[in-house]
Simulated scan of single mutants.
Amino acid sequence: MDKIVVQESPAGTFTQLVIGQSFTVGNVQHGWQVVELWSDADLAAIGIFKVSPATVPAGEEVVSTNIERVDGVVKQVVITQPAVLKASARQLRLAMNATNLRDDIEEYVASQSRDVQDSWQWTTEFESTHPFVVGAAEQLNKSPEELRALFLLAQTF
Results as ranks from 00 to 15, higher is better:
D2R: 13
K3Y: 04
I4W: 04
I4F: 08
A11I: 04
A11E: 06
G12V: 05
T13C: 05
T13D: 07
F14S: 04
F14Y: 10
T15H: 05
Q16I: 10
L17P: 02
L17I: 07
V18R: 14
F23R: 08
F23Q: 06
T24K: 15
H30G: 04
H30Y: 15
H30E: 06
W32A: 13
W32R: 07
W32F: 15
Q33H: 13
V35A: 07
E36M: 14
W38L: 12
W38V: 00
S39P: 00
D40T: 08
D40A: 15
A41Q: 14
D42H: 08
L43P: 06
L43H: 07
A45C: 00
I46L: 11
I46T: 05
I48P: 08
I48D: 03
I48V: 14
I48F: 11
I48H: 08
F49P: 01
K50F: 04
P53C: 01
A54M: 10
G59F: 11
E60T: 06
E60A: 09
E61Q: 14
V62D: 03
V63G: 05
V63T: 09
V63F: 00
S64A: 14
S64I: 02
T65D: 07
T65P: 00
E68K: 15
R69C: 04
V70Y: 03
D71K: 12
D71Y: 07
V74Y: 00
V74K: 06
V74A: 01
V74L: 10
V74W: 03
K75W: 02
Q76F: 02
V77T: 13
Q81R: 15
P82L: 09
V84Q: 11
L85F: 09
K86S: 12
A87W: 06
S88N: 00
A89C: 01
A89N: 11
R90D: 12
L94F: 11
L94P: 00
M96D: 10
A98H: 08
T99V: 01
L101I: 00
D104G: 04
D104N: 13
D104Q: 14
E107F: 04
E107M: 11
S113A: 06
R114Y: 11
R114N: 09
R114A: 09
R114I: 12
V116R: 05
Q117K: 11
W120T: 03
Q121F: 02
T124D: 10
T124L: 14
E125A: 09
E125M: 09
E127R: 14
S128N: 04
S128I: 01
S128M: 05
S128W: 02
T129M: 10
T129W: 01
H130N: 15
H130D: 15
P131F: 08
F132G: 06
F132Y: 12
V133R: 06
V133W: 07
E138C: 00
Q139W: 00
L140I: 09
L140R: 12
N141Y: 10
N141K: 12
E145A: 15
A149W: 08
A149N: 14
L150K: 12
F151P: 02
F151M: 08
F151H: 08
A154G: 11
A154S: 09
T156H: 12
